[in-house]
């Protein structure tokens, strides 16, 4: 529900927003909420409501994008490891070990510093830190599925490895992946907010929520609206994704579905 609402806001941002998220009005900077500006104005006199609305676009898109990249990479690595096995399995799993052992925020900071701090690079950095989880998940699924009867049956019918993987393995392994992905998106949005806070994430004047909270934090006690509205937006969206993830799992996990 919440996620759908935000997706809608993101999609319709130009029509919902009151003005461009970048229009400055220095003379009225830091004015509080009013009918004309329901969420008030920020330190450069930009309309916080419009920035939050446009920010929905950035947050939703970036969350989905990172999950897509990370899971695509993870699926490939996990399938290769689980299906081919042997030396490949060993090498790929040790690689995931290394990435998992790496403190993720430091890795993200370093990558973001190398590629220059920007939203895209922060997202890339987060993707780099999150693919191993997907790889492990898929590998475990592949290992448990590859000996199933229907795989043998498909093989008996002369299906090639690729066909078996694409037709049978991946679709069957998707359920836990989907759960992991929905649960992961919230974390991704928060990590990118954290990176913005320490200066390694989105850069001004991008209306990214984390950056808005971070920029508004010096006004927290006097002009609360600058940081609080984007923070609430993050809360709702991340909560939405988390609840959605729980829901998806309850639906997809057959063991849990049985009882009720």
């Amino acid at each position: 529900m919440i996620v759908a609402l935000f997706a809608l806001v993101a999609l319709l941002a130009p029509w919902i927003a009151l003005q461009s998220p970048l229009t400055q009005d220095l003379a009225h900077r830091l004015t509080g909420p009013s009918p004309a500006h329901p969420f008030g104005l920020d330190s450069l006199g930009r309309d916080v409501f419009s920035r939050v609305v446009y920010g929905a676009r950035i947050s939703v898109v970036s969350g989905v994008l990172v999950v897509a990249t990370a899971s695509a990479f993870g699926i490939t690595a996990g399938t290769v490891a689980g299906w081919v096995g042997g030396w490949w399995d060993e090498a790929l799993m040790r690689l995931t070990d290394m990435f998992l052992a790496f403190p993720s925020l430091i890795l993200a900071m370093a990558i973001s510093a190398i590629l220059r701090p920007s939203l895209t690079n922060a997202l890339l950095a987060i993707a780099v830190t999150s693919w191993p989880t997907y790889a492990r998940l898929i590998r475990a699924q592949v290992l448990s599925l590859r000996s199933r009867d229907y795989i043998d049956a498909a093989r008996a019918q002369g299906a090639t490895d690729i066909v078996i993987i694409v037709r049978h393995l991946i679709p069957n392994a998707l359920a836990p992946l989907l759960v992991q992905a929905t649960l992961n998106i919230g974390g991704i949005i928060l990590t990118s907010a954290g990176l913005s806070f320490i200066g390694f994430g989105a850069q001004p004047p991008t209306p990214e929520w984390g950056l808005m909270v971070s920029e508004g934090r010096t006004f927290l006690m006097d002009q609360w609206w600058v940081a609080t509205f984007p923070a609430l937006a993050i809360l709702l969206l991340v909560l939405g994704f988390n609840l959605l993830g729980d829901g998806v799992r309850d639906v997809l996990d057959p063991r849990l579905r049985k009882m009720g």
């Binding site: 919230g186 974390g187 928060l190 907010a193 954290g194 806070f197 984390g210 909270v213 971070s214 934090r217 927290l220 006690m221 940081a227 923070a231 993050i234 809360l235 991340v238 909560l239 988390n242 609840l243 729980d246």
Partner: peptide, 26 residues
């Protein structure tokens, strides 16, 4: 219970920290 527990996982840490310091300490 879930919304309560997930609430903590859904807010930027630095915002919660500054807010609590501002209210409970300052």
């Amino acid at each position: 219970a879930r919304v309560f527990a997930l609430g903590g996982t859904s807010l930027p840490v630095f915002y919660v920290a500054l807010l609590l310091l501002g209210v409970l300490y300052s």
